[in-house]
């Protein structure tokens, strides 16, 4: 049994990759799978904070690649789910600290340890770090915001996924690509100020696997170090749960696409 490698990528920075990786990995773990989530953002460690395990980082990804620590030593067990582990990014400024062979070795090790899924949180850009994060993937979640530069970048990333991954190079069958639209604001879409779900789908020629609304719950969750999927009362939390279920093969309709009805005060005073 080999682990399925899922990369969360986007091209553009700040679109919600780390937020998505944390929630996605947690969602998979909630369904009983053994999951590791790896921060590939060498030099800019962040996933540990979003997962709430920043004070327990002793060894990191680069330490394992360089043989300075074993996988077992470096994997941080999540405090909520015992089948969920985090591998932190190194804070080194050496961008060449990760190598393709090193990454392969770590992924191999995780497979041998019985992991079902490995979620790779990609750094921004299309340089080495992003390339390594996607290279071994079986499946990709491309995070996109309803905004011109993000949509254009995600088209480039979709192209790279189709050509510059090990699967593509070996002709092992295409990597499964999912488009996840995040930071969606239905009120602004209704006002014609923001690209809609169908606009983005039409431009990129691929259906979305989920739509995550723009919400203040995301900041609150990151402040607390709790992946937002665990905020089960929030729309964002529910939208992430739906997304994970869809990736696992369940059919669920998209939710939270319509602007909330304006209340009395808003109707009178605008806003």
């Amino acid at each position: 049994m080999t682990a399925e490698i899922i990369v969360v990528t986007s091209g553009k920075g700040g679109v919600g990759k780390t937020t998505t990786s944390a929630s996605f990995a947690t969602g998979l773990a909630m369904s009983g799978k053994k999951v590791a989530v790896i921060d590939f953002d060498v030099g800019l460690r962040n996933l540990d904070l979003i997962m709430g395990c920043e004070r327990r980082v002793v060894y990191d990804f680069v330490n394992v690649v360089h043989g300075e620590a074993t996988l077992k030593q470096a994997l941080i067990k999540d405090k909520r789910y015992e089948n969920l582990y985090v591998l932190a990014a190194s804070q080194t400024r050496d961008k060449d600290a990760l190598t393709q062979e090193g990454v392969e070795k770590v992924l191999q090790g995780l497979s041998e340890d019985g992991f079902d899924y490995v979620v790779c949180d990609s750094p921004a850009g299309i340089e080495k770090g992003a390339h390594l994060a996607m290279y071994f993937a079986d499946r990709a979640v491309v995070v996109v915001n309803p905004e011109v530069s993000s949509v254009r970048d995600s088209d480039r990333i979709l192209g790279l996924l189709a050509s510059k991954t090990r699967r593509a190079e070996r002709g092992d069958g295409a990597i499964v690509q999912h488009l996840l639209l995040t930071r969606y604001n239905p009120a602004r879409v209704a006002a014609g100020e923001m690209l809609s779900v169908s606009d983005v789908e039409e431009i990129l020629g691929i259906k979305v696997v989920g739509v995550i609304p723009e919400s203040e719950n995301v900041l609150a969750a990151s402040n607390a170090g709790v992946p937002v999927i665990l905020d089960a009362d929030s729309q964002v939390g529910q939208a992430y749960s739906d997304t994970v279920a869809r990736v696992l093969g369940e059919e669920r309709p998209l939710r939270f696409l319509d602007a909330p009805k304006k209340g009395f005060f808003q109707r009178v005073f605008g806003g």
Partner: peptide, 9 residues
């Protein structure tokens, strides 16, 4: 301006 964005993209 969403229409303009869509056309440019």
């Amino acid at each position: 301006s969403a229409g303009i964005a869509k056309e440019r993209l």
